[in-house]
Design a protein around this nucleic acid. Sequence first.
DNA 1: AACCAGGGTGATG
DNA 2: CATCACCATGGT
Length: 280
Amino acid sequence: MQYQVLENKVKVFNITDFNLGETFDCGQCFRWDSLSDGSFIGVAFNKLLKLRLENNTLILDGCNEKDFLNIWQNYFDLKLDYRQIRNYLKSLDCTLDTITQFAPGIRILNQDPWETLCSFIISQNNNIPRIKGIISKLCSKFGNPINNSSYYSFPEFERIACLNKEDLEELKSGFRAPYILDAARKLASGYISLQDIKTMPIEDARCELMKIKGVGPKVAECTLLYGFHRLEAFPMDVWMKRAMYLLFPEHDASYFGKYAGIAQQYIFHYSRSHPEIFSR
DNA sequence: AACCAGGGTGATG
DNA sequence: CATCACCATGGT
């Protein structure tokens, strides 16, 4: 990986198959915002980052070499060859040619497991703008401000574990509030270990996550894909069910092989961006 | 006013 | 195992 370290900034060269808008807007994360100059700003792993892509150069603003190597390189999955994966998917089914071509710059982020778990608990039977709002309130109320800015870290589960239902009231998360508390408490007590889940066989990892109230197959699958980078995980929400029925009848996740999760992301984003193909 | 949103729980056949 | 009302909230 070729990169250059500047004052509070890192430039990464020869970046391909990466589009920030497509990656941040494909439904896998909820804490990145686009700015008017084409760059994006957000928080992950207690760090505030502003970034933009100029031609094939990724410019990370507010970043030193250590954070690039320890956090962002992995967060943006820069070592994985997405072109090769798309070619593999296209070789499985020519329908995937059109679908991957629609947003070829999508990458699966390596997000924090707890943040991912909590975010997708909040996502259930909910819409994306409101999910973002609830998470934003969760962070500003219980996280810590970063560099004296108005951006906040995602609160640790230890912090959430000692709260009660009334503390979460102003989030307006509704019936999901007790689920958030149950998740935080089961992690804080050690009853469930994210560290252990990391190395478990995926079937065991699913069962482990579903010990949490409010975590079913779909939320568990999203956590495994976005929080643990299990690229074979295949979340099936309402959009994916419609898309599979219409575009891949008689097939399931196994049809897409070990990169099923990445296929899922292309399909999900394509479907959500073309709702008209389902109304007929 | 009814229906929907990146679902899951608990009760009932 | 399959189905179903219900869950809290905000937007159409």
